[in-house]
Simulated assay, not measured.
Amino acid sequence: MSHIDIRRKHTRSIKDARAAIERVAEHLAEKFDVEYGWDGNTMEFSRGGVDGHIALSAKEVHVTAQLGFLLGAIKGPIEREIHQYLDREFG
């Protein structure tokens, strides 16, 4: 299994950061067909071959995911896509 671990500092309020993560999740859901939902300030997402979460704190966004064998083969493009969405939302 491949593992994705991305941390991004932010200066937004939790409310604004949560709205930004929601937009990121919508893009990822559309692109990679994942299902997601919130548990407190952590968004959990999954689909066949991937399980992960986006944890939100007052100063950081932390994305982690376990990729199955098939998605592990395209780990690089998936990470780039996540970075692009985070760049767009958090600058």
Rank of each mutant, 00 (worst) to 15 (best):
I4W: 06
H27S: 13
Q84I: 00
S13I: 09
M1T: 14
A55S: 00
S13H: 03
R12N: 13
H62A: 08
L56W: 01
D87V: 05
W38M: 11
Q84D: 09
A73S: 12
H62E: 11
K59V: 04
H83F: 05
A65K: 02
H53E: 01
K59C: 04
M43H: 08
A65W: 02
H83V: 06
H62Q: 01
I54D: 01
I4V: 13
R47I: 00
K9V: 08
D51M: 00
T64K: 08
A58L: 06
R7C: 04
D87A: 05
V63R: 03
S57T: 09
A25W: 07
A58I: 01
L56I: 02
V34F: 15
R23P: 11
I78N: 10
D87I: 00
A55W: 02
A65S: 06
G91R: 05
E81S: 14
L56K: 02
E22M: 11
T11W: 03
A58E: 11
K59F: 04
K9W: 01
I78W: 11
E35G: 13
T42N: 07
I14F: 14
A25Y: 12
V24N: 10
K31D: 11
E81T: 13
L86A: 05
K9Y: 05
D39K: 09
D39G: 10
V63G: 07
T64C: 06
K75P: 15
H62I: 05
R88L: 02
L86Q: 04
F32I: 07
S46I: 00
G72L: 10
L86F: 03
L71E: 05
E22S: 13
I4F: 09
G48T: 03
R18V: 03
G91V: 00
A29P: 14
E22P: 12
I6C: 10
A55H: 01
R88G: 00
K31N: 09
K59I: 02
H62G: 04
H27P: 06
E79I: 12
A20K: 08
A20G: 10
G76R: 12
A20T: 03
F90I: 08
E30V: 07
V50L: 05
I6A: 07
A55K: 02
M43G: 05
Q84M: 08
N41M: 10
D33H: 15
